[in-house]
Amino acid sequence: MTRLAAHSRYPVRLSLNDTPVEAEAEPRMLLSDFLRHRIGATGTHVGCEHGVCGACTVIVDGMLTRSCLTLAAQVDGCEVQTVEGLAPSPDRLGILQQAFRRNHALQCGFCTAGILMSLDHYLRRNPSPREADIRDLLSGHLCRCTGYTPIIKAALEAAAELAATTEEKSDA
């Protein structure tokens, strides 16, 4: 049993986008605040802190996770993926990111990180989604700028492209 006292700070170690990171946190510190203000991974955004808007969505041990509804202490030792880990290299966008740019699937970009994480997680497991699947998946995210439809188009385009890329690989 591990007991962390209310007003003390304890080290939290986790793997962030395949890189080990460590910083101290009080028991009450949210994962969203930990990532942003302790680690400096500010790509994950905070929009409501009650689990509705989806801006803070990250992946913890393969599970889509609202980082505002998760304590930093809960993910000690876990693998966390955030928007900072999506691009294949700093000067190149991934297929999904490119599809977003091509389709103008973002405007202010504040909600985008969470949406990208949900889609990245989903498309890896569901390579040929229907539009209704994408709409169902993304109903857990709020976007105020785009009216959503360019996001759905980008997701479907990316899915098709990813499927084609996978086929090529398996053909090889």
Binding site: M1, A6, H7, P27, R28
Partner: peptide, 17 residues
């Protein structure tokens, strides 16, 4: 909008809970 302070127990056995 941050939680009030609490102790956090990570249980490793049901008896601890």
């Amino acid at each position: 909008m941050k939680p009030a302070a609490f102790d956090y127990i990570r249980a490793e056995a049901v008896d601890e809970v």
